[in-house]
Amino acid sequence: MKKLYLILICGWFLYPPMLSHASLIEEKKCASCHRLTKKENEKKGPDLFYAGNKFKSPWLEKYLQNPVTLRKAGTIHNPGFLKGERENNHPSLSKEDAGKITQELMQMTLPDLPVEELPDPLNKGQKAKTKYEFERTFSCISCHQSLNLAGKPRGGISGPSLVDAGNRLQANWVAVWLKNPKTFSEKSRMPVYKMDDETRLRFTRFIMTLKNEGIR
């Protein structure tokens, strides 16, 4: 029995993530700004306990090396948020560290997250219709930057920019967020939309078309 315990304990410590990535997240003190579990109180940085559901790995690795501003007014729990006073930028990591932390973050997922079946990519007509609804019916543009017809960023800044959402986010995460944001976060400043499934999945497809490559 003692041998079994010994093997289990050694196995835990020798498990690769325990040896490298987890310690790097700890060493970089990510938890001082980000929630790494849902049980913690809200923190000023975006939650990371579902990072593996939310982000696309190549974007995350690039971001950690060269952080760009996604929230011009800072994050919603930042005390200066309503005054547009952003706190310090996210620290930049070396390529090696960014790669290791990305691997670890991509393992942080929620159990039993629904898998949404997305429709085919939008044709021009559907895209134009959805853009119209994005701006007028659901007013998303009031809080989120997106691209206008001339390929220029436009829109409010209280929500994260969606200009490069197609490279940053996973489509399934967007679809689940639009259905029920509380799956991820108890408190958001965004209105809850009870979209029918067809609209919600079409919106997901539309958001995934927004990419930096579209900037002119």
Binding site: Q145, L149, R154
Partner: peptide, 10 residues
């Protein structure tokens, strides 16, 4: 397109 361009919020 004119409707979107003219009457959006951004």
């Amino acid at each position: 397109i004119t409707a979107i361009g003219v009457s959006g919020c951004g």
